[in-house]
């Protein structure tokens, strides 16, 4: 079975990136859920929710958690999720999601590397 994906982001960024990536790629080949974090959210509540999402998404192949800027509440929450099969990558951008979409059958370890590579390749001088 496929890896599940959870996007943990500031407000609506995750939704918009996912919609755009899905539209550019033509489809979203993964089971994905979104968790948006706002200023008024209590980190502990969100962490609990994140863990429930991960539990739902993990069908045995694990869950890739993608989060936006490192060191802020969403990424801090993502890094504290208590779950056995999980990889967290921060620095979410469109290029990261698109690269991941290209490898729907990869394992969690491989996919986390694809996320990292896609994200890094997406930043360059034009």
């Amino acid at each position: 079975m496929k890896v599940g994906i959870l996007l943990v982001t500031h407000s609506d960024i995750g939704r918009q990136l996912l919609l755009t990536a899905t539209s550019v790629f033509g489809k979203n080949p993964f089971q994905v859920e979104l968790l948006s974090v706002d200023n008024f959210d209590q980190p502990n509540d969100v962490k609990e929710l994140a863990e429930k999402y991960v539990k739902f998404l993990d069908n045995g192949s694990g869950v890739l958690v993608l989060t936006d800027i490192i060191g802020t509440t969403p990424s801090n929450i993502a890094s504290c999720i208590n779950h056995e099969r999980i990889k967290v990558v921060a620095g979410l951008n469109l290029s990261m999601i698109l690269n991941v979409f290209n490898y729907p059958d990869d394992s969690l370890d491989q996919l986390s590397i694809k996320a990292l590579e896609g994200g890094i390749q997406g930043v360059s001088k034009v």
Partner: peptide, 8 residues
């Protein structure tokens, strides 16, 4: 629209 809710 965000992704299919199919779970396989």
């Amino acid at each position: 629209k965000l992704g299919s809710t199919s779970i396989g």
